[in-house]
Design a binder for these strands. Sequence first.
DNA 1: GTTGTGTGTGACTGAACAGTCACAACTGCG
DNA 2: CGCAGTTGTGACTGTTCAGTCACACACAAC
Lengths: 188, 188
Amino acid sequence: MTETRSRGAGIRSTAEDQRVRIVARAVDVFAVSGYKATPVAEVAGAAKVSPAYVFRLFDGKLGLFVAAVDDCYAQVAAALVAGVGDDGTPTERLERMTQAYIELIRDRSLIALQVHAQSACDVPEIKDAVRRGLATVVRAVADASGADPDAIQRFIAYGQLCHLVVQAGLADVDTAWARVVDHGIRHD
Amino acid sequence: MTETRSRGAGIRSTAEDQRVRIVARAVDVFAVSGYKATPVAEVAGAAKVSPAYVFRLFDGKLGLFVAAVDDCYAQVAAALVAGVGDDGTPTERLERMTQAYIELIRDRSLIALQVHAQSACDVPEIKDAVRRGLATVVRAVADASGADPDAIQRFIAYGQLCHLVVQAGLADVDTAWARVVDHGIRHD
DNA sequence: GTTGTGTGTGACTGAACAGTCACAACTGCG
DNA sequence: CGCAGTTGTGACTGTTCAGTCACACACAAC
């Protein structure tokens, strides 16, 4: 099978392209209603392919969702690392990462998909994907910030708070309690 | 028990008893797989009644889920307030509330259902229930602790971190990154 | 041409599930 | 007794959706 296929590194077939295209759409589409409530046909439609083709390229709906979750966490880790240089104290770097995460809210897909993945952790493969993704993010943040464990834990907790703010749409709730929760987390 | 007397304020019919019985079971059952992935029949089975009866008592599956979420947040708020006296500084009271919340993890239902509710916020009625519940909890914590807004925000963020730890089952992950995330959050 | 390989789909099947409805069984009450 | 109200269910119905499969189309190489 060392035929016309990818010699060495880099050359990918059209199917491989479609796979990444579809995963990219899957992140956005699953972000709306989550794993169980989103039909594969909806992802297929968004990617302009037939549902049958999606089932050919992925190992069932579960395989598609897991691929989307993996991609999501990879994007998050990349965005966090990209948003920080290597100057300043660990605390300052962590602060810049926090701002980078808040910027991520603008496209709420990456946030929402994490929430849906955490919610679907009763499916073992999804729980594994969440653990993998979390490991990626925590390690990336630790490496790029050099902060101590307690500070990193607070950073993750603050991220989780952002998830709540986004999902509940607290920006649209003009009450004292809502302002307590989403203080400092500004988004359109 | 007392006969089926009921005139004037508060009709205490058997149906009302069943309603609260069923909601109690719904909290536990929905906590496993969430709104969309849990059939009403499963809740009915757990409550030892027929699915048809559940549909009679509640306004569809959505009404049942919303009732469960409301009950869940009420229980959480009650547990937090119950776990704290009125002695010590606000910071100390908040610390005791944090411990009370960690105790709640023992029965993971109340935690898991919150996650599922947040995940299902694309359904307007569920988003409203989450906002209501959050309002209840934040106000209860603010009143009972007397802490300042920033401290309360940190408390909520820490709660959200607990949700992640429980859903991902980090207690079963014996790696450095997992210990960073769940440090201080001990549960069986 | 034919043969082979990879991309892509229409048309199906089968199961799960929300919601309904007619009807049973029990309870007073006149 | 018959009548009315309330609790409770079995037996449906219609829909949605995951997954499959035979087939079509493209493009090589021979």
